[in-house]
């Protein structure tokens, strides 16, 4: 569905992306995972025909993007990271406008958006600018889908959306996948990576790893420990400078560490002697985020 080959794009002296190559298969949910500034949006814009790369080749639906952008736009549904529908037009006017631009009608493709659009349809006369975050997102998705695209490009669709709506949103994506739509989605939330078929972990314009979420987790070939105590932040700082630990990262109320072999007892004793109380350490299963943190350090 999408094939990228050695894409590079530079803004001034900053390299936004460097040597990016990956493929998105037919009917796959492919996730670009990485922090802000990793280059996710740049890749999305190139695939969405909005940006011309400095070098490299991008192909969508078997067509080279730069040469065929006019034809491709009929097959691509793009939802930018920032809500960008007309705030002074109503829900209904927005979706009808975009349907009309693609030469179709809301009725014609209603089946495709029905389970999303039906949720906001009761408010169809409300201006889009006055909707809640979750409703805006549903409207934007409906507008991106209304012309029955083959490829859906979603740039950080869940940023700034509450946890419940996020979960619901991923449910919708899974449903769309069942209807035969390929999805390229980006997100800074590592927990969402597990919901993709395959992910590319990105950092500073480069891809660190591409694989299924499970394979990414499996590639974490060390034992990961979660350490807790009463002073988590201080303990993290302490562990960072100790000789026992290789990787130390703060995860909420826990510190995730990988250790040199055979030192686990020493760590606990040392922490207790240094004055940390309620110290607990237990092995855990790594998440995509742990893998990402580890790759980042390397």
């Amino acid at each position: 569905m999408v094939r990228l080959n050695n894409l590079c794009k530079t803004y001034g002296t900053t390299k936004a992306i460097e040597d990016i190559s990956f493929e998105v298969n037919e009917n796959e949910i492919f996730g670009l995972i990485g922090p802000d500034g990793a280059g996710k949006t740049t890749i999305m814009q190139i695939v969405a025909t909005l940006l011309v790369p400095d070098s490299g080749i991008a192909e969508v639906c078997g067509m080279e993007v730069n040469a065929n952008f006019k034809a491709l736009r009929k097959h691509i549904g793009y939802m930018p990271g920032k809500f960008s529908l007309y705030p002074d037009l109503s829900i209904e006017e927005n979706i009808e406008f975009f349907a009309a631009l693609f030469g179709t009608t809301v009725q014609e493709n209603y089946h495709l958006v029905s389970d999303i659009y039906s949720q906001i349809e009761p408010f169809k006369d409300r201006p889009a600018g006055k909707l809640s975050g979750g409703m805006k997102q549903k409207l934007a998705l409906s507008c991106a889908l209304i012309h029955k695209p083959k490829l859906l490009i979603l740039d950080e669709p869940t940023t700034g959306v509450d946890a419940v709506s996020r979960k619901e949103f991923w449910g919708m994506l899974k449903n769309l996948q069942k209807k035969g739509i390929s999805i390229l989605v980006s997100t800074p939330y590592m927990d969402e990576a597990a919901l993709c078929d395959r992910v590319a972990l990105m950092q500073s314009g480069k891809i660190l790893q591409i694989d299924t979420p499970q394979a990414v987790v499996n590639s974490f070939n060390e034992v990961l420990y979660a350490v807790t105590s009463d002073k988590v932040y201080k303990m993290k700082e302490y562990l960072k400078h100790s000789n026992y630990c290789k990787n130390v990262h703060l995860f909420g109320q826990e510190v995730h560490v990988t250790l040199n072999t055979g030192v686990i007892d020493n760590v606990v004793t040392e922490l207790k002697n240094t004055g940390f109380s309620n110290v607990e350490i237990k092995p855990i299963n790594p998440t995509v985020e742990d893998c990402f943190m580890k790759l980042m350090v390397q």
Partner: peptide, 13 residues
């Protein structure tokens, strides 16, 4: 400013 131009640009308009 509000970004709608991006949304228009991905249409065949």
């Amino acid at each position: 400013e509000i970004g709608t131009i991006e949304q228009i640009n991905v249409t065949p308009v």
